[in-house]
Amino acid sequence: MAFTTRKSLLAKIREGDEISWDEFYSAYRPLILLRGQDFALKPTEKEDLVQIVMSEIFKGSREFLYDRSKGRFRDYIKKIISNQIARILRKRINQEVPLCDNDFSQINVLEQAWREEWRAHLMKMAMSELKDYVEPATYQAFILYGLHRKTSAEAAKFLDISVNAVYIAKNRCMELLKKIISDLEAEL
């Protein structure tokens, strides 16, 4: 059971609830930017990419409802991002701006890069989900010791808990995180 009543993005996608622009934007913007980076888009093109992908997904509405009959969400969003990147690159050709080395010719490299980026995105989502599932002190101990590489003693001192409690928090969070990542892999 979730520790907070806030419904996660995953739960909304899973249950077919509407997702707001803001929530989607903050969750997916880094992924879209990273994908733009693979094609060496210029900063302004990357920002354009985020905006047009968002517009394509929301189609003028403030809410987005994913239709599962469209297949897996990861394939759906990848297709939208790829189409819009292609559109930006075509615009470059029309403007006679040379394409960079990272164009569509390196399919395998780009596929691998996408898988890495998608995994990064899932991990980010999983962290956000995890926060809702554990007590704030547990999450904080995990962040300090697990992510920020503080020693167990430093984390324990900072949070005024025992070293053993830091390890309990870390192991509890790792167990949950693995479960959430595997759920996300299956759901999205």
Binding site: R29, P30, L31, L33, L34, Q37, P43, T44, K46, E47, V50, E116, R119, A120, H121, M123, K124, M127, G146, L147, R149, N171, M174, L177, K178
Partner: peptide, 26 residues
């Protein structure tokens, strides 16, 4: 688990960096 944590740190940094660079340019 340590290996997963390493991966997590690396991946989150990459996403943060991509978003951070874009914010800086904005």
């Amino acid at each position: 688990d340590d290996a997963l944590l390493d991966e997590l740190r690396g991946k989150l940094d990459r996403l943060k960096q991509a978003a951070g660079e874009a914010n800086k340019l904005n």
